[in-house]
């Protein structure tokens, strides 16, 4: 059963922490993670694997979502091929251990950036790839129209998430009571909510939209309540102490934003080979040696854009079908929060 497999992988991760690692003798100058990925020829990328819009296999078994594309972009930048990638499914509960122990090179798993996590886990967030907030979904038949109506409600949540913390705070501040039902398996949570075991289902609003989308014809029976009770900036995580690797994760994301800003997409990127725009020339590695500075080749951003696309394309491919408005996840000059420092 999956749970058993998960426990095993958690145990393996713990053992990896306990046992002496053979890689400790590696020279500290370069990035040990980059060196390991190059030697392996494959990027091990931790994802959820069960969240529509973030990472969920399609009918052909191909992992789809912005987290999945985040993994592809890193593989394209580092190894030159977005297919040199292994998706490692992680749960909310074993994700940090998997990264801490080196089982995965990077965690792209709709994980909320918080001070507590960054300060105590030995991990750090590279960048924000999705601006989200905790929301509530209820059945339309319940007649609930606001989170304030949820006093006394039973709420389904996934254990080990920042949703738990947000709900605990929200109900405490508003002097309301609730009964949590904490189920680890996403499918079982959905079943519990659909069967009426819970009055509300709470998680990131994007995931709620994804859940409603997967209900097909019954999508209209569910209502996303208007309140977002917390800020949930999601992003990829890496281990602390490998600054070069951290730089790569962060700038791959900035390259995608810059590409959208400059109007460079996977479809037209090759037509820019003789452009005179210095920003585009630097982005595509036609001048300067920004790639070398990162420890990559000059084609790194070209490969990302050519093989995966810019932020707008990634959104259109993964989030737009869920009916999610782009909102905060638009470019800074279009009313959103996506803002990349200059590539120079």
């Amino acid at each position: 059963m999956p749970r058993f497999a998960r426990s095993l992988s958690g145990l393996a991760a713990l053992l990896a922490l306990l046992l002496p690692s053979l890689a400790r003798a590696a020279p500290p100058a370069a990035s040990p993670t980059l060196a390991a990925v190059l030697a392996r020829g494959v990027l091990n990328c931790g994802v959820a694997g069960n969240a529509a819009g973030f990472s969920l296999p399609d009918s052909a078994g191909v992992m789809r979502g912005i987290d999945a594309d985040g993994c592809r972009a890193i593989a394209a930048a580092v190894l030159g091929d977005q297919k040199k990638l292994k998706f490692v499914p992680t749960t909310t509960e074993n994700r940090f251990t998997a990264l801490q122990s080196g089982e995965i090179d990077v965690l792209v798993r709709e994980t909320t950036w918080t001070l507590g996590r960054e300060a105590s886990l030995g991990l750090e967030f590279g960048v924000i790839n999705f601006y989200d907030g905790t929301g509530f979904m209820v059945k339309k038949s319940s007649g609930v129209t606001s989170a304030r109506d949820l006093d006394g409600a039973t709420i389904c949540v996934e254990p080990g998430t920042s949703t738990e913390l947000a709900i605990a705070d929200y109900f405490r501040v508003n002097a309301m009571k609730y009964t949590p039902v904490e189920i680890q398996d996403l499918q079982e949570i959905h079943n519990a909510f659909l069967s009426g075991r819970c009055d509300a289902y709470s998680t990131d609003s994007s995931a709620l939209a994804g859940f409603r989308f997967t209900q097909g014809a019954h999508a209209e029976d569910f209502v996303l309540l208007p309140e977002l009770i917390s800020k949930e900036p999601l992003g990829p995580m890496v281990r602390k102490g490998d600054d070069k690797w951290f730089d790569i994760i962060r700038w791959v994301s900035f390259a995608e934003i810059t590409a959208e800003e400059l109007g460079v997409s996977s479809r037209n990127v090759e037509s820019f080979h003789d452009t005179t725009n210095p920003d585009i020339r630097r982005l595509l590695g036609l001048e300067g040696d920004l790639g070398k500075a990162l420890g990559l080749d000059d084609q790194w951003a070209f490969n990302v854009i050519r093989q995966v696309g810019n932020t707008g394309e990634i959104w259109q491919r993964n989030m737009a079908p869920l009916g999610l408005p782009r909102g905060l996840n638009n470019l800074w000059n279009r009313g959103g929060l996506l803002f990349a420092p200059p590539l120079r």
Binding site: R3, T92, S120, G160, E182
Partner: peptide, 21 residues
Amino acid sequence: AIGYQDLVSIADTTLNQTGQA
């Protein structure tokens, strides 16, 4: 697996929140 909060469930959440596996 079925949402009953026994020791393992609560300890799992604890180690997830504190990072002290």
